[in-house]
Nucleic acid binder design. Structure first.
Length: 612
RNA sequence: GGCUCCGUAGCUCAGCUGGAUAGAGCAACUGACUUCUAAUCAGUAGGUCGCAGGUUCGAAUCCUGCCGGGGUCACCA
């Protein structure tokens, strides 16, 4: 049990013994004492004053004396309803030793509860972009945080490998690919396939533009357009109908989809081939980000399961079939709409597949807790999905959670593929590494290392900068991504935190004897105590991050700890400290800080270099 | 329009399960490297916490309304 826990326990006891109040730990508020007051922790007495019916001064004295008599604090002071407490030095010394020596500080023992985290979930017609990166980093970090807090976590993604989009790429490759492959061209597989998607779209656009000027196009415009709608407005809103009704390319793409659904050998072979190229490309990106999955799901193999569930719901009469054959669920009594579950031709829609996937996962892994990391544009979709699972009485329906995050904007506005403003994941990764490399070269600290080692460090720093930049923002907030700031390595950044760690490693390398002097009566400075208090907050913040599925909590924690260490480092000498006791203590303290920094950054998926 | 998320310094963000004088970083300016890694530190400057009410010992934080922005309300995914 460490200082903070001891304090909580004793306060609960004190309130019981002194005032006959029965409270639990969660009822009491303990703050880190603000720097302008003496003490490290502050007990907020306000909530108890009306119940105790005594003056704050009197209550503070009683509780303060109580804590003193138990040997926890050396002194206290009372300001209004705040009881500021100074913890006795020996507790701090023990605490520093513990954190430095053991690696499980704050870690929750595995309790076996299973949870599935779904993230990334790309389409196979395009390479990953900035939006995916936010998704992937959030998902990965939530996985780490849940694991650290004792869950049995499975990382998964659902890959949208079927549908009209991939057929567009396939068709374009058939038409204009000339039999080329990623290997022939040296183009990364996902980009290779994405290029054909773009090619399809631009040819389609040309076809559409020509049609607009044709007799048929003009006729449609004059007969279908709404009052006051300009020709330009009309055609931009008519694109989908054109694709489905008149487009030659559209017809060919749909033919391909049908032929895929009928299991046509050549089509399926091409489909497999192109998807494989994409997966090879994705793997490289995931690898650069240090991401792996335990299990992939593919929509091509889960949508059938979804249909089964729909039939199940029909049998139980919680869904209904319209005259045209389409299947619906009515959620109006629950404050939502009617929702389509199967088209009239019996084919599945997006939500059908999600129903199937959830069921499959439950069957295969027995997890009744599922977290979906998906952008907030799909909030309603998940409300509906979860509600349907409740209607069906699925055992996992209570444990489904949509970790919704805001979309990523650029300083110039939204990312739009049509306008070519989408930030490509691979480009971005290359960019941050390049920046990290040129700064490293300039600093010169690692110039003498082997090339491999140098590359490793530069990778760690560049990726660390990118990851921290993305994760430090609360998930639900829309974020503005400025490419210039993302390669920033100073101030509130990943490398800043890595640098604190590196400084400690440098000290430890130079320090020969690492044995601690136990039982020393060294009195830590205010600065040193501040560092200790922050270390002791690690479990508190971890718990918060885990309960709220919010990695930004750990990002902010890491930053604060690193910042305090940097300040400490500038104010105190470690190796040439003023006394042997101070030296020993500071080494232990530095070791503790390094350990906690490494662990909290690890929760964000960020590695720590030993030199930089 | 219904529902929903967001609004804090010039910019990017913390703080939000009510607690002390609202904090960081970037950008600007000043200072600190023959001394454990200056990717650092110290300092100056920068605020009607979108607006208005309410709840109370106390509101950036909770409630209501309004304003501004995003998302969503497809037989798309």
């Amino acid at each position: 049990m460490w200082v903070r826990e001891k304090l909580e326990t004793l306060l609960v006891k004190a309130l019981g013994e002194l005032y006959n109040l029965s409270v639990v730990k969660d009822d009491i508020t303990i703050n880190v004492t603000r720097p302008e007051f003496d003490g490290e922790y502050t007990f907020v007495m306000f909530p108890f004053i009306p119940k105790i019916k005594r003056k704050p001064q009197e209550i503070g004295d009683s509780i303060g004396d109580y804590l003193k008599s138990k040997g926890l604090i050396s002194g206290y002071n009372i300001v209004k309803g705040f009881l500021n407490l100074s913890i006795k030095n020996n507790h701090w010394l023990d605490f520093a030793d513990y954190v430095a020596e053991y690696s499980d500080f704050g870690k929750v023992k595995p309790h076996g509860e299973k949870v599935i985290v779904e993230f990334s979930s790309p389409n196979t017609n395009k390479p990953l972009h900035l939006g995916h990166i936010r998704n992937i980093l959030l998902g990965w970090s939530v996985y780490k945080i849940l694991k650290e807090t004792g869950y049995d976590v499975t990382r998964t993604q659902i890959i949208n490998d079927r549908g009209i989009a991939i057929c567009k790429s396939m068709l374009a490759w058939n038409k204009w690919g000339g039999g080329k492959t990623p290997d022939d061209t040296g183009i990364k597989g996902d980009h290779f396939v994405g290029d054909f998607y773009v090619r399809f779209e631009s040819n389609f656009k040309e076809e559409y533009t020509n049609w607009q000027l044709s007799e048929e196009g003009q006729l449609i415009y004059s007969s279908v357009h709404k009052e006051g709608q300009s020709e330009k407005e009309f055609f931009s809103s008519y694109k989908n109908q054109y694709f489905n009704l008149y487009s030659k390319l559209g017809a060919e793409a749909r033919e391909m989809l049908i032929s895929w659904e009928n299991g046509d050998r050549d089509t399926v072979a091409l489909w497999k081939q192109m998807n494989q190229w994409v997966y090879n490309g994705f793997d490289k990106t995931y690898d650069a980000l240090g991401i792996i999955f335990d299990k992939n799901y593919y929509e091509s193999s889960t949508y059938l399961e979804g249909k089964k569930i729909v039939n199940e719901g029909l049998k139980e009469k919680v869904f209904f079939r319209k005259d045209d054959g389409s299947v619906w669920v009515d959620l109006e009594e629950r404050g939502m709409d009617k929702k389509l579950l199967l088209r009239k031709d019996g084919t599945s829609v997006y939500i059908t597949q999600d129903l199937g996937t959830a069921e499959l996962r439950y069957k295969e892994m027995g997890a009744n807790k599922m977290i979906y990391v998906v952008a907030d544009e799909q909030n309603y979709h998940f409300d509906v999905l979860f509600e349907i699972c409740k209607i069906l009485n699925k055992p996992y329906s209570g444990g489904m959670y949509h970790l919704s995050y805001g979309m990523v904007d650029l300083p110039t506005g939204k990312m739009k593929s049509r306008e070519g403003t989408v930030v490509d994941a691979d480009d971005l990764i290359a960019e941050v590494k390049k920046e990290a490399g040129s700064i490293a070269l300039e600093k010169g600290e690692i110039n003498l290392l082997e090339q491999d080692e140098k590359d490793d460090i530069i990778h760690t720093i560049g990726i660390g900068a990118l990851k921290f930049h993305m994760i430090k923002v609360q998930p639900q907030k829309r974020m503005v991504f400025d490419p210039k700031e993302s390669v920033d390595m100073q101030g509130q950044t990943g490398p800043y935190i890595q640098n604190a760690y590196v400084r400690i490693q440098s000290i430890l390398r130079k320090n020969k004897e690492l044995e601690f002097v136990r039982g020393s009566d060294y009195a830590p400075s205010t600065m040193e105590k501040e560092l200790l208090v922050q270390l002791s907050e690690y479990p508190v913040e971890l718990k918060k991050a885990s309960e709220e599925f919010d990695p930004s909590v750990m990002a902010n924690f890491s930053y604060k700890l690193a910042k305090t260490y940097h300040r400490f480092y500038n104010e105190h000498r470690v190796l040439s400290a003023e006394s042997e006791e101070a030296r020993q203590f500071r080494i232990v303290l530095s070791q503790s800080v390094a350990k906690v920094l490494k662990r909290s950054m690890n929760l964000l998926g960020i590695d720590m270099p030993n030199k930089m």
